[in-house]
Amino acid sequence: MAKPKVATTSLAGCFGCHMSLLDIDDRILKLVELVDFDKSPIDDIKEFTGQCAIGLVEGGCANEENVRVLQDFRKHCDILISVGDCATMGGLPALRNTITLEECLNEAYLDGPTVYNPDGVIPNDKEIPLCLDRVYPCNEVVKIDYNLPGCPPSADTLWEALVALLTDKPVSLPYELIKYD
C-alpha cells in the first residue's frame, strides 16, 4: 500500500512553523517511513500530484494568493490542520486588522520614517497578489479540521499530532503541548 501523503504550505507566516517541523530532528527519518511529502517547501514540489491525507497550513490569509492556495489545500487534503497562531488567529500579521489597508500601504510605501520612494508609487503590478482588507484566520476561509496552537507549535506538538492522525488515533495533546507562545 502506498504511503499516505502530506502537504505543507506557508501563507502569511514566517516559516517558523516549518522550522519547528524540522526540529523533530532524527524523528524525520521515521516520518519519511510513515508518509510521502507532496506539495511542500520541504521537497519543493510546487503543485499537488494527487489527493493528500494531511495538509499542514502555516499562516493566515493576507492576500488573494493565500486564499487560492488555502482553497487548493482544502480541495486536495482529507484532513486540514491550522499550524501555529497565524493560521489559527491571524497572528502578528493580523495586527493590521484595526488599521485600514490604505493607511498600511501609505505607511509602508510613502509615509514611513525609513521609506525611500521618490516616485511615490505604491506597488500595483498585476503579478503582485492583491492584499485583502484584513488578515483572515484560515478557519474563516475554509473548514479547518484541527488547530495546533503555538508560535511556533513545538516539534513535539507537531510530531504527536501527526503520528496520532497517521496511526488512526485521536489527537489528544498533553497539557505541556498546548501553548499559545
Binding site: G90, P137, P149, L173, I178
Partner: peptide, 16 residues
Amino acid sequence: AYRFGIAAPKYPYMFP
C-alpha cells in the same frame, strides 16, 4: 484555556 485543553476558540475573532 490550557487547563480546558482549548486549541482554538470556536467563535470568529472580532479584532476590536
